[in-house]
Nucleic acid binder design. Structure first.
Lengths: 237, 237
DNA sequence: CAACTCATGTGAATGGTTCTTACATGAGAA
DNA sequence: TTCTCATGTAAGAACCATTCACATGAGTTG
């Protein structure tokens, strides 16, 4: 396992072979360590074992590297959300909640990607590739909202799916930003971010007229018990 | 108007007189221009007309300046929210919505403060002064939620106020972060951030059992018209 | 196989940044 | 009036981004 690309590898020819990838990985590690702000181009080069000028053969400047990472992040984000949504199986509401948890899981497990995507100051709309990737990720949430909106109980007004998607996205993003990462200097919370989001989404959906009582697996159609809130249930995760 | 602090002011003695304040203002301007990341300590010094070493007499380092700005931001934020809440006048729900709008207004009108507070990577919990200021600002939202929770209609479960506050805060922060500032490279939106937040909060409150139908000023107790959503009303702002 | 080419990496240089240290200044206290 | 000390300056070490002329060698081509 040590025959290739092991930190100090004196036996590297003049050419690296896969510097672009190595730089992306190095930058990712550095961002995870020291935050998107405290990462330096020169450090990435050092970490890949090349001279400080080498990276310029692959990225116009530091910002372009950051943008590449953000793009890759959006791509991984999209596949993660797609998997979580699983086309609405087994049922739309629980799949929807799974998407929310996947959102938080991504923020928690991939802080480097997350901060490159949302906190690094990379201008998204400027880069077509990047904004397309971001759009694709968001479209998963939007599609899920669309399906959910179509399920609106009779007698209730049907909410605009785009608006629903924006609300859910905002709440997810807000929770992830404010309380998401346990890593450094975030606020303390009396509950897990996941539980907070789940409760918030349930309350929101109920506000739209969805029946959101926890149906026990055995009795999916139990009689509704109105005066209980989504916040008292102990999630059996 | 040019007798004081006009870019190149040759008639300044050896001592500046109010450098600390001048640096804070200069930094604020620079952050507004180039973002929290692209602001440099040296630039602030230049902008205040002093040598690059002078700021070190007032701030241990660049981060401490940023933290000072964040703290001042939280203080202004607190007074703004306090004013918006106005102790729940004229009625709890509308005061609550006003707080939400104030949140977005702050993000929009004071992008420099906002990004120092939330996007600059300043570790909040590390600095007691800073975290206290942040806590005071949040406590406004929490107090409002408390009052709102106490109003829960009979027959509905009373939600934990802290949780409500966190939900509202998260949604506000998410919307502000994702769509709040029109300035640079944010996402386009089919509606204003304010309307988005207002609709979201109304749906959320309805999910908690609050009657959130828009009561016309003339007829505050009109019969509830269940199948309308908060999203169709054209806000007469 | 030899020559060529061009993507990729190097070294060195420029100019800007943070932060330190020794020194200068002058406003207010004594 | 003199002294002191907070506040500012000059100079410098260490670091970073970025550029440019130049080196290398993998792959192509005759």
């Amino acid at each position: 396992m040590s025959w290739r690309k092991d930190h100090r590898r004196p036996e590297r020819g003049y050419h690296h072979g896969n510097l672009k990838e190595a730089l992306l990985q190095a930058a990712l590690g550095l961002i995870a360590e020291k935050g998107a702000a405290g990462f330096t181009f020169a450090d990435a080069a050092r970490s890949a074992g090349v001279s400080p000028a080498a990276p310029y053969r692959h990225f116009r400047d530091r910002d372009e590297l950051l943008a590449s990472i953000a793009q890759r992040g959006f791509e991984q984000f999209e596949t993660l959300l797609t998997k979580a949504w699983d086309d609405g199986r087994p049922d739309t509401v629980s799949a929807f909640e799974r998407v929310g948890r996947a959102y938080l899981a991504f923020a928690r497990n991939e802080p480097a990607y997350y901060s490159a995507m949302f906190e690094s100051g990379v201008p998204i709309d400027v880069n077509p590739m990047l904004s397309a990737a971001s759009e694709r990720a968001f479209s998963i949430i939007r599609a899920a909202a669309e399906r959910l909106a179509a399920l609106t109980p009779p007698g209730a007004a049907r909410p605009p799916a785009l608006m629903m998607a924006l609300h859910i996205w905002s709440m997810s993003h807000g929770i992830a930003s404010l309380f998401g990462r346990g890593d450094a200097a975030r606020r303390k919370l009396p509950m897990s971010a996941e539980d907070l989001l789940e409760a918030g989404v349930l309350i929101y959906l109920r506000g739209l007229g969805f029946p959101t009582e926890r149906r026990s697996p055995e009795d999916p159609n139990a009689a509704p018990k109105p005066p209980r809130g989504p916040w008292d249930q102990k999630s059996a995760t």
